[in-house]
Structure formats: C-alpha cells, structure tokens
Amino acid sequence: MIRSLGLVILVLAVFVGLQSVYMVNERQQALILRLGEPVDAVNEAEDPDPGLHFKIPFVMDVLIFDKRNLEFDMDPEEIQASDQVRLVVDAFLRYRITNPLRFYQTVRDERGAQLRLRSIMDDSLRGVIASIPSQDVISGQRAELMERVQVAVETQVATQDLGIEVIDVRILRADLPQQIAERVFQRMRSEREQEAARIRAVGNQEAAEIQADADRQATIIQAEARRDAERLRGEGDARRNAIYAEAYGRDPEFFAFYRSMQAYELAVQAGTPIVIPPDSEFFEYFSAQGG
C-alpha cells in the first residue's frame, strides 16, 4: 500500500513537474494565460527568449503562436480598374505575428487572422486598383501598385491593432478575364497576319527592285556595247577613208582610170552584149591598117 501510495505520489510529482514547464522553440512565441487572462508573452519579436520556461501548474496556460514569416494567399478576384476594365487579381500577403497578446485579443488564432486579412486585402486592393487604369495595373507600375496596396493594408492593420506586421504584399497575377483574353488573342492574331503580309510584300518589292535593277544594268550594258561597236566601226571606216585618200590622192586621174578598169572588169559579166562603134579607141588600129 505504502509502495503504491509512493508510486502515486511519484506519478503526481512528475505530472505536476511537466505542468510547470513549457518549451518555446525558435519558431514560436507564447502567450501565458493565468486563468484565461493573458499575462505575459514569451519569445516575441522584441524579446527573443526561446527555450525552457516555468509556469505555475494548472493556473497558467500556454498558447503557442508562430513567429515566422507567414503567408496569406488570396483567392483570385475580379476587380474593376479606373477605366472600367475588369481584371482578375490574385495577390498574397506575408505577415508576422509581432504582438501575441493583441493578436490573441483581436483575432484569436491564425484562422481568425486570415478572415480579417482577407477583408482588409480585398478592401485595399479594390481601393487602389479602382484609382488606376488597367494598363498600369497590368504592366508599367506594378511595383508601385504593390507598394500602395501594402501601405493601405498596413494602415488598416495598424488601425485595427491586430498585433501583426505586414512584411510584403505582392500581386501574383493581374490579368484580363478569359473573354477579354480571347479578344487579345484575336488582336494578336490579326497583328501577326498583318505583319506576315507586310513581310511578304516587302520581300516581293525588294525582289522586284533587284530584278528591275538587273534589267536596267543589262539594258545599259548592251546599249553601251552597241554604242562602242558603232564607234569602232566608225573608226574603221574613217581610217579606211584616210588610207584610201592618202594612197589615191597621189594621182587622182590615174586613180580614176585604175579604179574604172577594175570596176569594168568586175561589172561586166560573161556574155553581156556590148555594142561598140568601130571607131572606138579599142578598134583604133582595127580599121586604120585596113583602110
């Protein structure tokens, strides 16, 4: 019996011992509740103190919160930009619990925090995007846009004093809804078609230019050749005339005789009838001796 009693006491002692210690690791922070009333925070951001801690057993409870950089992912939403274009916006937020006491008092746990953050994010996104044309949301000033949303979220978080720090707000996607995307595809297609047509036209134009240039060159080359040929012929003729003039000029009278003789010989064919008077020069001695 005594042994059993001792055992019971031992068990009780161990149990009480376990109830009087708790561990807070590097990733955690703890809120100490005394009979349900928060009294202290352990290992919060300003006062890191991880490790083994003691508490009054049964009277104090320990609530553990995450200390790390946490993520809150929004569902994609359609939001209207200032130019009435609806955009599908998907954003996420990174936050950290900095004040477990306020956190516990305002949202109790992470689920509560997410509910609150969802409405804050939604609000801030709509507020900021409604004042910006869709073009700027999609492209140009995304970094600036995220900055503005973050400021808006931070302001609300601070006002509500949620005990959290907003680390970053990032827009994951800011896209056109599907039906508008179809229109974009249509436009892209017709732009490409125009581009293809333009490229082909330019190609044909350049081809025609190359051909025309070749034809021009060919024509000019041939014309110049003909010109040169005529010049050469002219040179030849001129030279011939000069040669003849030089040679024949020695005795024009003899030339006339000489050339006439050649011409007669060539011009008169065999069997050509020639009527000739007997008193011609040829027959000078023909009748003189006889008569």
Partner: peptide, 8 residues
C-alpha cells in the same frame, strides 16, 4: 567574154 556587136 562579152557578146560583142560592132556597129558603124
């Protein structure tokens, strides 16, 4: 080589 005709 011609057909010669002599005419007075």
């Amino acid at each position: 080589r011609s057909e010669l005709i002599v005419l007075d």
